[in-house]
Every structure is written in structure tokens, then in C-alpha cells.
Design a protein around this nucleic acid. Structure first.
Length: 765
DNA sequence: GGACTGGAGATTTTT
DNA sequence: TCTCCAGTCC
């Protein structure tokens, strides 16, 4: 095999990245610049040209989908030798290490993994057990703090010590502490634990650390901009010995900051590692010229970023169209007609189309319209397969069977199907179990000898027996047969079949689908054990099954679209207050991230991009006035073809005429309407209510007053201001930037923030 | 245990 | 507007 096999048809930068020798390397790969290709070819190059053994390579991704794709592509390049390579998600890699060494942190090797909804349930238990108000200590609030703490490897005691004197946070420390103890008692871990426990093991055990850091001579990380602190530490530990760390990412595509991703990891990579080689991949192989130029224009407004600019050699201009619809129904209708049009005229297929949006709630009208037009679609998001009640029930049974300590799962299924073990009985058992320091199942097993429980002991013991019979079976049967047996002998299937309710038809189908998943697992997986099936189960998501082969239009959020591409992309709801979202706090970080989301959306498109917005939209039952997003005016007018007028005579326009807001007399400017007028946010309808730029529903009069106040006195250094989320603070610096004011504010409680004056909704006080 | 009701809340979610 | 929840009644 000669070198050209790995570098054939590659540009110079790509070749540089693929063939670079030892040391740390940062590959800044713009959207559509062929980064997966570079990554897989670099792996192949290392193995074939540098004689690195595949087992010495660790490649980390964020999704199973990306991992599988990479595995497959490397296999295509070097053959089955690729099998001994560790290619997987951060979580699957850590899980592998954790299973081997979990005894070092007091965890049984049959521990189960709690997903987000299990976590929510367990936290709910903790909050009620501590007699705290779940409105004040909401799941969102608590889970974020706990997740952040785990990301920083901060245990409950340390968290408490750091927040002494703060009543609320001390209570949070109580919750965090109880939650951790419950997890340990149930022999369970949450998603964050998988990473933080692994780091803990590596940091505390030199022999374990030496083993893995010796083993992995080359570490490669995909989507590096999405790593959080713990992932950074993990990568640092594992690559320290050999120093061969190659990370690929794009700071402009960092859209998961709100979930703990720290995109400073990629911005600071060069200072955090020694002698870093940096390669910029800016040549784009995906999008037509107009689309690329639009993307560049939108993203260039961001403040914190590595300066890159995508370019293409392609002559294809592509199309970039906008459409302003009367309301969301007309918007959906426009999209449907465009799809039909392109299929007819350009011989495109349904699978070539994607409709993207900022909020899942926008999908409904789109769905309705596609459905009634007979356009097949595939929707992502919403209730996920593995989060459906019936599936969670089966999983709960399987978990109790594999790990009888799992009280959370046991409580879920002990009385489903009905066994006459209701809440009162269960509370009795729990109380006894706590007193005897046993698990619920243990207590149930001996309930005959406990006076307080003896009345119903036969029911309890029968349940225990059923679990243990199944437990014995699990070791002897193929997984799919075993799953069938569980569904059968526990009576789950019967419960749904016999209920006679129509809505249970879907549940029954889902249960069958679950069995198919087990069959599929047996076919695909090397390790076909029950344990392996359960591991796999905990880390799979619906996204893994995403493929555009089935002739259907794809509907998904902008977030889920990252990493995908489509010949035709529609982005719906490109309006102020929807995108960027009005409830943002106005910080530079959030606004930048929102803009990156727009950039991600635009760069999904290959040939045709349609950006649509509405004049009114019904949000939570209230019809609200909307205006075009600022992102639209960031795109040079000459790139855009506005189709708003073209469709005036279409019948859908008549059909929805009745819903035209009475105040709406906006002249239909030819060309690009939002370029002509001043800021769209200054357009004030005579309607009673509207959405203000910053998202509150306000009275028009109040709105006018607010605007006056802002224009009357601009913010100055030294001003004391109030922010609805951060509280009171003092302006320390004012930066003027093309009309917008960037304020650096020291808040009393929230610390220093940089906010955009136009968004932050600040009140001078 | 199930049916009913009133009230609050309603981003984005790779694992 | 819709959906999810806790609380109430039978």
C-alpha cells in the first residue's frame, strides 16, 4: 500500500493533517471540510505507515453514530485489523474502564446506568424525603448544579464547604449528598458519573493510569469543541505519557455550551498542550457558493472565535431564498409546495429535504401540513423510544433482574402489572427495609417473618420468586428469547393487550419493536451476553438509527442537525424572539452560541437553502407579532432571492386570509424587505399585546415607554443596573460595536458578565 | 386504582 | 394552547 492511498484526492491542508507526525495537533475543521475523512485517513496512515498497532489507538466521539461511522470507514481502509482499536463515545470508553475497575470506588460490577428520567425520579425522591419544596428546588435547577459539580469532580462535602452560609445552596448540598448515597445504594450511576468516576479511578490509581496511558499511544478526539471539563481532563490523562493527541473540531459549531460543553477547550488548546501543530481546514466540499457566503457573513459577527473563512472551488452558485409568511400555517404551506415543486421539476426525492427549527414546538404545524399534503416525513425529537413508559417498564424489569439492589427500578414495576402492592404496601416495605438496612427486594423476600409485613407476605414473596427465576434464566437463554420471556412471564404484554384501549396498540407495537432491537443486538454485537445488552441499552439513542434512506422528509431541531447534510434545507421560524430566542439572558456567550446555531443550520445545506419567517405566530395559545430575525439582515441582500411576493396569489394565502392581523399593513417591498427598513424590532403594531425583543409580553404603551427610556439615556460606565436573571450590578466597561453596545457588568451575586445592551433588558436603578 | 380537575409552565439534549 | 402534575373523589 503506498502513501497516496491515504492522501488521494485530498487538499494540501488535509494531507498535512493526515500525515503529521508525533505530538499534539489541533485540526480546526470548518463545516463540510471533510473532517471525518481526515480523521479516518489519519488513523489508517498511523497504522499502515507508522506501524502503530490498532490496539494502541483511541478515537473518541460524542455519538454512537459518529463512532460507528468512523469504525466502518477505517475498516474499509485497513480491513478487519481495525477491530482491536478503541473507537467509541466518551461514555462507552469510560464504561469499559469503569466496569473493569469499579471495585476501586465501591461499586458492584453489575451496576446499572440511570438515564435522565431515572435521575429525575431519584432526585424527586430525595427532595420529598428532605421535605423540600420542588418548586424552589426544581429538577432543572438541581440537576444542573449536580452535573456541574460532577464535571468539576466536586463531591457533596466539598460543595457544601464552598457554600457554607448560603441557605439554599446548603440545602442543595443535602440533596446532592442524598442523591449520591441513593445511587451508590442502588448500585447505579448516572451519565456524569460514568465520566467522573473513570477520571477518579485514573487519578487515584497509578497502576490503572499507567496501564491505559501506556496502551494508548495515539489519542484522537472528534468534535472537540463539545468537550466539557471532565472530558478535557480525561483526554489529558490518557494522552500525557505519549503526547500524541489529535483533536478535531470547529469552535463555530459549539452549540452545547448550555449543557456543560466548554468551548474554551478548543480555543485554549494551543496553550494547554505543548508544541501544538495547528491545521485549518477551510475548504468546503458541501455547500454551494451563496450558502457558504451567507454562513460566513452570519458567523463573522461573533466575538469569541478563531478567525476562519470557508471557501469552495465549486462553481455551483446554489440558491438562497427567503419567504415571509402571514403565519405559521402559510409558512408550512410554502415549504410543502416548494418540496413538491422541486421533486417535480428537479427530480429530487423526499429524503433530500430537511426542515429545521429552533424549537420542537414548531414541528406541530409543519407535521400537520405535511400530513395533509401526503408528504412522508420523519420527525426527530419529542418522546424518545427508550423513554416511553412501556419500554422503561421492560428495562426496569431487566435492571432489577441484573441488579437486585436497584430500588428505583423495582419501585417502578413492583405493582405493574397489578399485584396488589400499592403505594401504602410499598411504603411499609420501604420503611422496614430502611430499618433493617436491606434493599427492598431483600426485605420482601423475608417479609413472612416480619410482623408488620406478614399480612401481604405471600404477594411479596411471589414477586421475589418471579425475579429470581428470571435471574436464573437470564444466564442460560439468548438475550432476545430472554427478553420475550420477561415480557411474557411478568404479564406486561397481557396488561396492555387485555386493557382493550386503543392507545395501547402503539405500546404493544413498541414492545415488539424492543424485542426486535434485542434480536438485532444479537446479530450485530460480538459480546451477546445479557450484561452486554444492558450496557448497550443504556447508551443508545434514537439518533443512532437516523438514516435518510427512507424516502421521507426529515424534521428536526437545529441542534440535532449538527453533523448532517441535505441537498435542500428549510429553516423555519427565522424570527426575532424565536431565533435568536427571546428568553436568552443577553450575555455574549449565549448570543454567540445562538448565532453559531444559525451557522450550523445554514451549513447543513448543499444546494438550496430556504429561510422562512412569519409575521404572526401563535405561541402558547396567544397570537404574537413576529419580525424577521437579525440573522436575515446579516446576509448580504444580493445573495438572497425573496419569494414572499411570488406566492401572493397561491390558494393557501387566501385560505389563511382570515387570520391576517388587522394591523398588518406592512408594504410588500420587492427584494429583501428587512434590508429596506430600520431594525425590525422598532416596528410597533397597534395591537394590544406583542412580543418585545426581549421576550416579555408587554402592552404597547409600556413598550413605547421602555423604548424611550433606552434611547433617552445610553448606558455609561458606573451606572447601576438591574437584570432579570443576574440581579443588581454596576457597569464597568462599555464597548460600542456597530450600533450595538456591549456592556461589561459586575453583578453583586452573579459575578462579571458581558451583555449586549439591546438584548439584556437592563433597567437603570 | 381510575377518572376528573385546576393550575402552572412550556429551549436546545451527542450520553 | 397543550400537557403534565398533584390533589380529590368515588
Amino acid at each position: 500500500m503506498n502513501k497516496s492511498v491515504f492522501t488521494e484526492n485530498m487538499n494540501n491542508k488535509q494531507v498535512e493533517a493526515i500525515t503529521y507526525g508525533d505530538g499534539a495537533m489541533l485540526i480546526l475543521a470548518g463545516a463540510g471540510s471533510g473532517k471525518t475523512r481526515v480523521l479516518t485517513h489519519r488513523i489508517a496512515f498511523l497504522i499502515k505507515k507508522k506501524s502503530v498497532h490498532p490496539s494502541e489507538i483511541l478515537a473518541l466521539t460524542f455519538t454512537n453514530k459518529a463512532a460507528n461511522e468512523m469504525k466502518e470507514r477505517v475498516e474499509n481502509l485497513i480491513g478487519p485489523a481495525a477491530n482491536t482499536m478503541w473507537i467509541g463515545t466518551f461514555h462507552s470508553m469510560c464504561l469499559r474502564i469503569l466496569r473493569t475497575h469499579c471495585d476501586k470506588i465501591g461499586l458492584g460490577s453489575n451496576f446499572v446506568i440511570y438515564d435522565t428520567s431515572d435521575q429525575k425520579e431519584l432526585l424527586g425522591d430525595c427532595i420529598s424525603e428532605l421535605n423540600l419544596d420542588d418548586k424552589i428546588y426544581s429538577y432543572q435547577y438541581i440537576s444542573k448544579i449536580i452535573s456541574n459539580s460532577k464535571d468539576k469532580s466536586m463531591d457533596p462535602e466539598t460543595f457544601r464547604a464552598l457554600n457554607l452560609g448560603n441557605h439554599k445552596l446548603e440545602k442543595v448540598a443535602d440533596i446532592y449528598d442524598l442523591y449520591s448515597r441513593k445511587l451508590l445504594k442502588n448500585n447505579a450511576v448516572d451519565f456524569d458519573d460514568i465520566l467522573s468516576f473513570t477520571v477518579k479511578i485514573l487519578e487515584k490509581n497509578k497502576s490503572v493510569k499507567d496501564f491505559y496511558s501506556d496502551k494508548f499511544k495515539y489519542v484522537l478526539v472528534d468534535e472537540y469543541q463539545d468537550t466539557n471539563n471532565i472530558q478535557y481532563r480525561l483526554v489529558k490523562i490518557l494522552s500525557k505519557k505519549h503526547g500524541n493527541l489529535c483533536v478535531v473540531g470547529d469552535d463555530d459549531q459549539s452549540i452545547y455550551g448550555w449543557r456543560g460543553a466548554n468551548f474554551e477547550n478548543i480555543l485554549n488548546f494551543e496553550s494547554q498542550f505543548k508544541q501544538v501543530k495547528t491545521v485549518f481546514l477551510e475548504q468546503n466540499y458541501r455547500s454551494a457558493k451563496k450558502i457558504l457566503e451567507a454562513a460566513n457573513n452570519v458567523i463573522s459577527k461573533n466575538i469569541l472565535r478563531k478567525n476562519k473563512k470557508l471557501w469552495t472551488e465549486s462553481d455551483n452558485e446554489g440558491t438562497l431564498c427567503t419567504f415571509t409568511a402571514r403565519n405559521e400555517y402559510a409558512e408550512a404551506q410554502f415549504i410543502v409546495e416548494k418540496i413538491k415543486d422541486l421533486i417535480k421539476k428537479d427530480k429530487m426525492e423526499y429524503k433530500d429535504f430537511a426542515i429545521l427549527y429552533r424549537l420542537n414546538s414548531l414541528s406541530r404545524v409543519l407535521e400537520d401540513t405535511l400530513l395533509s399534503a401526503g408528504v412522508p416525513y420523519k420527525l426527530f425529537g419529542g418522546l424518545k423510544f427508550y423513554e416511553r413508559k412501556e419500554i422503561k417498564d421492560i428495562i426496569a424489569y431487566l435492571r432489577v433482574i441484573i441488579n437486585p439492589d436497584d430500588n428505583l427500578s423495582l419501585k417502578r414495576i413492583v405493582n405493574f402489572p397489578r399485584r396488589g402492592i400499592g403505594n401504602i404496601s410499598l411504603a411499609d416495605i420501604e420503611r422496614q427495609a430502611a430499618m433493617r438496612d436491606e434493599t427492598i427486594l431483600e426485605t420482601m423476600a423475608v417479609s413472612g417473618s416480619i410482623p408488620e409485613l406478614s399480612k401481604n407476605a405471600s404477594k411479596y414473596e411471589k414477586f421475589v420468586e418471579m425475579i429470581f427465576v428470571l435471574r436464573a434464566d437470564s444466564a442460560e437463554m439468548p438475550v432476545s428469547k430472554f427478553v420475550e420471556k420477561v415480557i411474557d412471564s411478568t404479564g406486561i404484554m397481557d396488561a396492555y393487550v387485555n386493557s382493550g384501549k386503543i392507545e395501547n396498540k402503539a405500546r404493544i407495537d413498541n414492545i415488539k419493536e424492543f424485542v426486535s432491537a434485542a434480536v438485532e443486538f444479537e446479530k450485530q454485537s460480538e459480546d451477546k451476553s445479557f450484561e452486554s445488552f444492558m450496557n448497550n441499552l443504556a447508551l443508545v439513542t434514537d439518533l443512532d438509527s437516523l438514516d435518510s434512506e427512507e424516502g421521507a422528509v426529515t424534521l428536526m431541531t437545529l441542534h440535532s442537525s449538527k453533523g448532517l447534510e441535505f441537498p435542500v434545507v428549510f429553516i423555519a421560524g427565522v424570527e426575532n424572539s424565536t431565533f435568536p430566542m427571546s428568553r436568552l439572558d443577553g450575555s455574549v456567550e449565549e448570543l454567540d452560541e445562538e448565532r453559531r446555531l444559525c451557522y450550523v443550520g445554514i451549513t447543513r445545506a448543499k444546494n438550496h437553502l430556504y429561510l422562512t419567517c412569519t409575521k404572526t405566530r401563535t405561541v402558547y395559545g396567544k397570537t404574537v407579532v413576529t419580525g424577521p430575525s437579525e440573522y436575515l439582515s446579516d446576509i448580504p441582500a444580493e445573495l438572497i432571492e425573496d419569494l414572499s411576493n411570488e406566492h401572493l396569489g397561491a390558494d393557501y394565502d387566501k385560505r389563511y386570509q382570515g387570520s391576517e392581523a388587522h394591523w398588518d399593513k406592512t408594504p410588500k417591498n420587492p427584494g429583501s424587505p428587512w434590508h429596506a427598513s430600520a431594525s425590525p424590532r422598532t416596528h410597533i403594531p397597534k395591537d394590544k399585546t406583542m412580543f418585545e425583543g426581549t421576550g416579555r409580553i408587554v402592552n404597547s404603551v409600556e413598550q413605547l415607554n421602555n423604548m424611550k427610556k433606552v434611547s433617552d439615556d445610553a448606558f455609561e460606565t458606573g451606572n447601576k443596573v438591574e437584570h432579570r436573571k443576574f440581579g443588581i450590578g454596576v457597569i464597568e466597561k462599555v464597548f460600542k460595536d456597530s450600533g450595538d453596545e456591549l456592556l461589561e457588568i459586575q453583578f453583586d451575586k452573579a459575578g462579571k458578565k458581558r451583555l449586549m445592551a439591546a438584548y439584556a433588558n437592563l433597567k437603570k436603578i
